[in-house]
Simulated scan of single mutants.
Amino acid sequence: MAPSARRLRQKEAAWPRSMARYEQREKLGAGINGEVFKAWDTQDKLIVAIKRLSGSGNDGLIISGIPEVARESMCLSACRGIPSIVQHRRTYADAYQSENGDSFIVMDYVGRLNLRGYMQRRVTRRRRFSEAEVRRIMKQLLEGAKAMHGQGVLHLDIKPENVLLDDGTEDRKERPKKGAIEADVRGEVKGDRVVYKIGGFGMSQKKGPGKSLPEVTILTPYSAPELLLHSREYDDRVDTWGLGCIMADLLSGTGASMFDGESDIEIMAKVFGIVGTEGIKDWSGYSALAADRKSKLPGDGGISRLRHKFPSRKLSSAGFEVLSGLLESNPEKRLTAAEALQKPWFGKQRRGFGSFFKSCMVGVLPEI
Rank of each mutant, 00 (worst) to 15 (best):
A132H: 07
D59P: 00
C245N: 05
R9G: 01
D108Y: 06
I50M: 07
D249L: 06
R186D: 00
E131G: 06
D235V: 05
V110Q: 04
E35Q: 13
G352F: 13
L61S: 00
I274H: 07
E215L: 12
R6K: 00
A256T: 09
F356G: 09
D166C: 09
A95V: 08
Q24A: 13
K45Q: 15
N33C: 12
C360L: 15
K51I: 11
K309T: 12
A70R: 14
P160E: 08
S103R: 10
D282F: 04
R307K: 06
N162C: 03
D166Q: 09
N100S: 13
G152S: 10
V238S: 07
E68G: 00
V195A: 14
G242Y: 03
G354F: 14
K197Y: 01
R193I: 00
G276N: 03
G65A: 00
K314W: 07
I137P: 09
E339S: 10
V153N: 11
Y286W: 12
R71S: 07
R351K: 15
I47V: 15
M268D: 01
S64F: 02
L227F: 02
R136L: 09
V189E: 02
L61M: 01
T240E: 13
L289W: 05
V238L: 07
Y196N: 09
L61G: 01
N58P: 00
I181G: 07
Q43V: 15
L326R: 11
P209T: 01
S130F: 03
G354L: 15
M148D: 09
E170M: 14
I32P: 02
R7C: 00
R71P: 01
Q97K: 11
C75E: 04
S231T: 08
I267F: 03
D292S: 13
V194I: 12
D300C: 02
G285A: 03
L76G: 06
E68Q: 10
A340F: 00
L297Q: 03
A180G: 07
K314C: 12
D282C: 06
R52T: 12
H149W: 05
I368T: 14
I274C: 14
A224M: 08
L341D: 01
S263C: 05
M19T: 03
G354Q: 15
A78P: 09
N100W: 11
K177P: 11
G101C: 09
V275D: 04
W345K: 06
N58A: 03
Q205C: 05
V48C: 12
A14N: 10
D171N: 11
E266F: 05
I218C: 08
T220A: 02
